[in-house]
Design a protein around this nucleic acid. Structure first.
Lengths: 239, 239
DNA sequence: TAGTGGTCTAGACCACACA
DNA sequence: GTGTGGTCTAGACCACTAT
């Protein structure tokens, strides 16, 4: 059903795992491109494709003459992550609280994305979590996905664990892209409560739509972010 | 002094210019990779490097079996752009107001980035502009750069025009990367006035540091964004 | 001087879109 | 079937970093 992962993707996954799990630590240097070329028995441009993806997502920075240096281990795909991860990494205090366990229901009436007829008919599985950095709640995340070809999801998934890792292990679903919209809003009483803010305090509100390797499966997230203490940051490079 | 641009970069610049200037319009299909390979007399992977950069910045989307399709013409490098560009593009109502013309002075005391001794000593050139979409002010942008090897900048540069284009044409300075921090804040009276908001309304505040092809030259921007009508958006893809 | 990442070539086979 | 972008190979020369 799902296509076999291309080899650059497999190398990317392996390296990402080794960074996140701490086998490579911050400021460590990854094996060089030539080294990986030899060991993995793949062409250098394929190695570079994997490293470019890791760089794009902020796991490594590449320095000419030096190598690929581990930067931080992000949780989020793509663009926005929490600044201050190095501090968080020293203290290791990153935690996740479950606010609403996965439940099956209808899509919200005010759902901020347009849904296909198939998605609408399938109904919706949703769950909410609060992410904390150094015990400060910084993000309230509600995730939505269509109730479609995901047997036993609500029973098997524990929101304390990585959602994307779970999807990969149980259903061979991989995230291949994302689009998002970012706004500043006054916090609702619900969000304010979870993030320990006063109602009306400014929040960054992010709507995300993730693409996956199942071409018609999309995953949606709504994020409320308290940026008082930790800003969101990212980096892009052209060459 | 400045190195000659690599050929993928030259193709990237040419295509970007042709998209921004309207030679290619939204939903037009660019010449195929094979076509560009022939015409430009460069290898396909070099063509792909240029197109990948355009895709990363949102100028095009690539579709297997179809081609590279023009998406929108962004003003900003990299990550965040204003949603609703298609609407803006139909009406063509994108305008820039000069709030503060370029002036030489000291760096602000509360400057949000750490500066090198050289930058500090050189002093600072700054200017402010308001960007409007459909006559709605959506962004107040203040740009800062060190007063260093940029002869006659304050006399020559007109803030109505593209800053990056000006840097490229007069000094051969190209933007090669960017990092940014994003926060939600309550608007100051100054920002509220320029963006036609009430003081205290939520704003997206962005601090940006741009890298250039001059290895020790950085350009800084502080953006206040009104996201009531137009959200900021972006897209990332892994494959 | 040796090793690194950056750029580039000239091919190849594949899955997908479309007529 | 033809053309598209996606993946991949096996080389090459360069600029930069470190010793």
């Amino acid at each position: 059903m799902t296509a076999p992962a291309p080899s650059y993707r497999m190398l990317y996954n392996r390296l990402k795992k080794e960074i996140v799990s701490g086998i490579y630590k911050i400021s460590d240097v990854l094996p060089s491109e030539n080294e990986l070329t030899k060991v993995e028995k793949i062409a250098r441009s394929t190695v570079r494709q994997a490293l470019l993806q890791l760089e794009k997502e902020g796991y490594i920075v590449k320095r000419k003459g030096k190598g690929s240096i581990v930067a931080a281990n992000r949780r989020a795909l793509g663009v926005l992550n929490y600044q201050g991860f190095s501090a968080a990494m020293n203290g290791q205090v990153v935690s996740t609280l479950s606010v609403q366990v996965p439940k099956v229901g209808q899509w919200p009436d005010d759902f901020p994305f347009t849904l296909s007829a198939v998605e609408l008919k399938a109904g919706c599985v949703s769950f909410s979590r609060v992410r904390c950095l150094e015990k400060d709640p910084v993000m309230l995340e509600t995730s939505y996905l269509p109730n479609l070809n995901l047997p036993r999801f609500t029973r098997l998934y524990n929101p304390q664990n990585s959602f994307f890792d779970f999807l990969a292990q149980h259903y061979h679903i991989e995230i291949t892209g994302m689009e998002q919209e970012i706004r500043a809003v006054a916090s609702s009483s619900m969000a304010a409560k979870q993030l320990k803010l006063k109602k009306g305090d400014p929040l960054v509100l992010i709507h995300r739509k993730y693409q996956t390797n199942r071409s018609s499966l999309f995953i949606y997230s709504v994020l409320h972010c308290n940026t008082n203490k930790y800003a969101m940051s990212n980096e892009t490079n052209s060459r």
